[in-house]
Amino acid sequence: MTAIDDRLDATFTALADPTRRAIVARLAQGDATVNELAGPFAMTLPGISKHLKVLERCGLISRTRRAQFRPCHLEREALDAAVDWIEESRRTWTERFDKLDEHLRELHNERFPTTGEQAHD
């Protein structure tokens, strides 16, 4: 029911790449420099930088401008928005199915007013 706004769309597009997801997962544990991020991915620094730019553009991460260290910081709110969307979608179906379950029960009770009794037409 929730329309995906452009910002959220950009966030999901950015997260479509496995390397970028891994970067986000790493940053969820704390800030890290480009060098620290490049380590586990067997990637060149320019390669990592390209990914960081995509994440930065959609607001998922921010970087300070000082020196070459420029620690990367995960913007939790942007990530939460994406996770919230998924959770809301799941909640909608859960609640809908709860109601359908109840509706089916009522239909059954209307048709078979006394439990254990056979249908009588």
Binding site: D9, T13, L15, A25, R26, V83, I86
Partner: peptide
């Protein structure tokens, strides 16, 4: 649906951190 949640790697990646 938004691409991020299409594959198990993505889910595992998030599961370990969030």
């Amino acid at each position: 649906v938004p691409e991020a949640f299409h594959n198990p790697q993505a889910q595992a990646g998030f599961a370990t951190s969030l």
